[in-house]
Amino acid sequence: MAPKISLTLDCKDAKTLSDFWKSTLGYIDEPPPAPFRTREEWHASFDLSEDDSADDGAWLCDPDGVGPRLSIIKVPESKTAKNRLHMDVRVPGHGSPDERWERIRAESERLVKAGGTVLEEFDGHHFVMADPEGNEFCVAAAST
């Protein structure tokens, strides 16, 4: 059995970034680990400094259990360079190349309205975008 992976994004504002990625991926807030009833209860179980807050992180999951878990964690430093790893958001659906491109374009426009930024367009193929904190990702067609 292959190991499961989870992805972690460093951030300045976990709430803003988690809202963006929930909208982008259709993810939901991951329930806290047992036996905790809330993330706040789970967070309080650690011996953390008073500066640490339950709002400093977010844990997201695919409601269908297929995609990797996404942790969004507040860090003190800002992003300084291009990501060495990025996500590809794959837009589902079949059809002609023009129909696939229209779906990709529509999804990139939706993500701009959600707080993303288009960095580069590769006409007919994919968009390179950034989330509200500058983390790069691509929007492309799902593999056929």
Rank of each mutant, 00 (worst) to 15 (best):
D51W: 00
G93S: 07
S108E: 02
D47K: 10
N83M: 00
D56P: 03
S53M: 08
T80P: 04
K82A: 14
W101A: 07
K79E: 08
P68K: 01
W59Q: 12
E102N: 14
D51R: 12
V89C: 06
K74Y: 09
D88S: 11
S45Y: 07
S71T: 06
A54F: 00
R84M: 07
H86G: 10
S71G: 11
P92D: 11
H94T: 15
G95A: 09
G65T: 04
T38V: 07
K74L: 02
L70H: 03
E40P: 06
P97R: 09
S71K: 10
T38L: 08
R90P: 10
E102Y: 06
G65Q: 02
C61N: 04
F36S: 12
R105L: 03
M87A: 15
D62T: 01
A81D: 12
P92K: 11
H94M: 10
L85F: 14
D56Y: 01
D88V: 12
E40N: 11
A54I: 01
I72W: 03
D56K: 05
V66F: 04
R37E: 15
P76Q: 08
R103Q: 10
S45V: 09
G57N: 10
K82N: 12
S108P: 06
D55R: 09
A44R: 14
L48S: 14
H94Y: 11
F36K: 11
V91C: 05
F46V: 02
E102F: 02
V75Q: 07
A58L: 01
R105Q: 10
S49V: 03
L70A: 05
P63A: 05
R103M: 09
T80R: 12
R90M: 14
P76I: 04
S108Q: 05
E41C: 02
L60S: 04
A44L: 02
E40G: 10
S108N: 01
G57D: 05
E77A: 07
